[in-house]
Simulated assay, not measured.
Amino acid sequence: MTGQDKTIPVLEIRGLQTVFHDAQGAWPAINGLDLTLHKGEVLGLVGESGSGKSVAGFSVLGLIDPPGEITNGEVLFNGRDLRKLDEESLRQLRGASLSMIFQDPLTTLNPVLTIGEQMVEAIAEHTRGATPDLRRRCAEGLARVGITSPAERLDQYPHELSGGMRQRVVIAIAMLNRPDLIIADEPTTALDVTIQGQIIAEMQELQRESGAALIWITHDLGVVAELADRIAVMYAGDIVETGSTDDVLDRPRHPYTRGLLNSVPGDTAAGEPLRQIEGSAPPLSRRPAGCPFSPRCDRASDMCLDQPPPPEADANGRVWRCYHPLPEEEAA
C-alpha cells in the first residue's frame, strides 16, 4: 500500500445485494450491505449459520457462482470498484492484494501438488520477472505461522499434514504476497480449542506486522472478543448492529446481539440451561417484510412487521437497526 492515501478505506461496501435464483424467483442472501474497513483494522463479522456472512465474503471477491448473482451495490477496494473490473483484472488482485482463508483447507489445497509447489505458484502468479530463491521465501512463510522444519514441509503433500498444519499452510499462502485485505471465513472452526488459540495468536501477530485489514467471519463471539477492533452483527442478510468490540459486547443495543451473547455457554451459571434465541433464522424465500428479526424478538411491535428499521447511530459511531433498541442501562 505504499503511497496510498490513508484517508481512503481499504474496503468500502455500499448497498451490496446478492441474490440466489430458483424456479420461484430471486431471493436476497445479502440485502443492501454497507461496511467500511481501514488499513490495519480487524472487523469481526458475526451471526448464526445462514445469516449471510460467508456469502458476504465471497461477494467481496466476486466469487459468487450461479444460481447466485450480485445484483446491486459497490465494492470499493482502495478506491476502485471491484464490480466494474473484468474477470482477469479480478484474478490478478485475488491472492495478491486480496486474499481469502477458507474454513476447510482440504478444499483450498491441491492434493496432487506438494506444499512447496503450491506456494511457489502463489508467488509466481503475481510476480513479474524472475524471483530468486522462491523456496526460501516459502519456507520463511511457513515458519512465520509456527510450522516446524519448514524446508522439509515444502516437499510434503497436504494429506501428510495434520488439520492444524494444513490451516497454517493456507494462512501462510494467504500472507505470501502481503495483501492489503484478508477475508478469513471461519478458518479455525474445525480445529480443537488449543490449535484454534495458537492460530488466532499467530494470525494477530502476522496482521500487526503486515498492516493488512482483516475481516474475520465467525459465529464465535469469544474469538472476536480477543481479535477484532470492531464487530458487525449480521442477521438474515442485513447488518443489524456494528460498533467497537467493547461497545457491542458490553452494551448491545440490538435484541439479536443480546440474544447471541446470552447464548454463550460461559455466561450461563452452572446447571442452568442455555438462554437460546427462540425459533430459527428465516429461509431466503420467507424473509419478513419488516425487521427480519421480528418473528423471534420479544420487543417487536406492529411497526416492526411493516418496514425494515432505518439505521440509528450514537456519538461513538455505533450503528443499529431496531425500532425498539435496548436502553443503554439495560444493555449494560
Rank of each mutant, 00 (worst) to 15 (best):
V46I: 13
E48G: 09
G50H: 03
V55D: 13
A56I: 15
A56S: 15
F58N: 15
F58A: 15
G62F: 12
L63H: 00
P66H: 11
P67M: 12
E69W: 13
E69P: 10
E69T: 15
I70A: 14
I70V: 14
N72C: 14
G73T: 11
G73Q: 11
E74V: 09
V75G: 05
L76R: 05
L76I: 13
L76T: 08
G79Q: 00
R80P: 04
R80T: 13
D81T: 06
D81G: 10
K84S: 14
K84M: 14
L85C: 09
D86C: 13
S89W: 11
R91C: 11
Q92R: 15
Q92E: 07
L93Q: 07
A96W: 07
A96V: 04
A96S: 13
L98P: 00
L98F: 07
S99F: 10
M100P: 02
F102E: 03
F102I: 00
F102K: 04
Q103I: 11
D104S: 03
L109V: 11
N110Y: 14
P111A: 01
V112F: 14
V112P: 08
L113W: 08
T114F: 12
I115G: 04
I115R: 00
G116Y: 06
G116Q: 02
G116N: 04
E117C: 10
E117I: 01
V120T: 03
E121R: 02
I123K: 01
H126C: 03
T127P: 01
R128V: 09
G129A: 02
G129H: 05
D133E: 03
R135L: 13
R135V: 06
R135M: 09
C138E: 06
A139H: 00
G141N: 09
G141T: 03
L142P: 05
V145R: 02
T148Q: 08
T148E: 15
T148L: 06
P150G: 00
P150C: 07
P150Y: 04
P158C: 12
H159E: 01
L161Y: 01
M165R: 00
